[in-house]
């Protein structure tokens, strides 16, 4: 019995504790990201934003969350009930499990996988299932159209994202996320690989279905796309998943191109601040760009979106893979 306790229960509990240490701050961050978005957009449009609930509207996310909880979950009669209910859960869970491999600092990582970046890529490519299942199970025209658009969009942009990741991997010589960050001690990859960083960030916008690529939920033509039949907490899970994905994509950009937890320079005032805070600052800056883009750009037309993905980003990223590989071999810089 004692053996069982030490062999299974204790390590199991320790893992659960570590998972909670990541998930709870993440959920709080998601809640405050919604407020951040509304406040920043309000400021850009010369409005106040939420300011009634709590000081400066700081308790607004919790009021919204409470509202979601107490509303009624409506399941349409003609929907495919089980798939309809699994879809939002899947979206939410996938947004959470990706965080298992994100390194918050030197050695501060839940699972130090050797193929960490592939794991992230795999999880983000699974995200399309939540949306396509929701669209199909709703048994509604709008939802189905939104889901189809979304699936095509995510599959298209994944291709160029894959090539961007390949470029970074060529430079680093490892698939481990901690190694990728540590390889940037000299210079952040955003400088030598600037075009790739831009392509990656724009693809991240498309991958998370954010403005200006939010065609799956374009409210003027599809009402709300795949979410149209969802209400209360089932909608809430989609919402949380989408925002958690935004944070995830920003984190991925920060790790791949902005040096993850590393300070900008290895000198005294910067090194006083611990690594996780640097990562959080970088993620916040990238999230600000997410919101900034939303407040300033009109939505893409669907054929233009496809054109950008397949005819611009794909050749560009392929070219950069070849160029990077060529430069690495020519100057003998291979890791």
């Amino acid at each position: 019995m004692v053996e069982l306790w030490t062999a299974i229960a204790l390590p199991g509990l320790w893992i659960v504790a570590k998972v909670l240490m990541i998930v709870v701050p993440l959920l709080v961050a998601v809640a405050y990201l919604t407020l951040f978005e509304r406040k920043v957009m309000a400021a850009m449009q010369l409005r106040m934003g939420p300011n009634i609930v709590g000081p400066w509207g700081l308790w607004q996310p919790f009021a919204d969350g409470l509202k979601m909880f107490v509303k009624e979950t409506v399941v349409p009669t003609n929907s495919n009930r089980v798939v309809f209910l699994i879809a939002p859960m899947l979206t939410f869970i996938l947004a959470l499990v990706a965080w298992a491999v994100i390194p918050f600092g030197e050695g501060l990582v839940l699972a130090n996988l050797n193929v960490g970046i592939l794991y992230l890529f795999a999880v983000s490519s699974l995200g399309v299932y939540g949306i396509i299942m929701a669209g199909w199970a709703s048994n509604s025209r709008y939802a189905f159209l939104g889901a189809l658009r979304s699936a095509a969009q995510m599959v298209s942009y994944e291709v160029s994202m894959g090539f961007v990741i390949v470029t970074v991997l060529l430079v680093v010589g490892s698939l481990n996320l901690s190694d990728i960050v540590l390889a940037q001690q000299g210079v952040w990859f955003v400088f030598p690989l600037l075009p790739m960083a831009v392509v990656f960030f724009i693809s991240a916008l498309a991958e998370t279905n954010r403005h200006p690529f939010d065609l799956p939920e374009a409210e003027s033509e599809l009402v709300a796309g795949y979410q149209v039949e969802y209400s209360a907490m089932t909608f809430g899970l989609f919402f949380l998943g989408e925002y958690a994905n935004m944070i995830m994509m920003s984190g991925m950009t920060a790790i791949l191109f902005l040096g993850g937890w590393l300070p900008p320079m290895d000198i005294v005032p910067f090194t006083w601040i611990p690594g996780p805070i640097w990562l959080a600052l970088k993620v916040t800056a990238l999230l600000f760009v997410f919101v900034w883009v939303r407040a300033t750009f009109p939505r893409y037309r669907y054929d233009q979106l496809m054109r950008l993905g397949w005819k611009v980003f794909l050749p560009l990223s392929l070219l950069w893979v070849v160029l990077t590989a060529g430069a690495l071999v020519a100057f003998d810089w291979l890791p």
Binding site: F121, A122, S125, L126, V128, W136, L148, E158
Partner: peptide, 20 residues
């Protein structure tokens, strides 16, 4: 990971597309 990325992330999505 390659199994998940290639088969689940791409091939099965296309299957699902066609079947739907």
């Amino acid at each position: 990971m390659i199994l998940v990325i290639v088969y689940v992330g791409a091939v099965a999505v296309l299957f699902l597309f066609v079947v739907m």
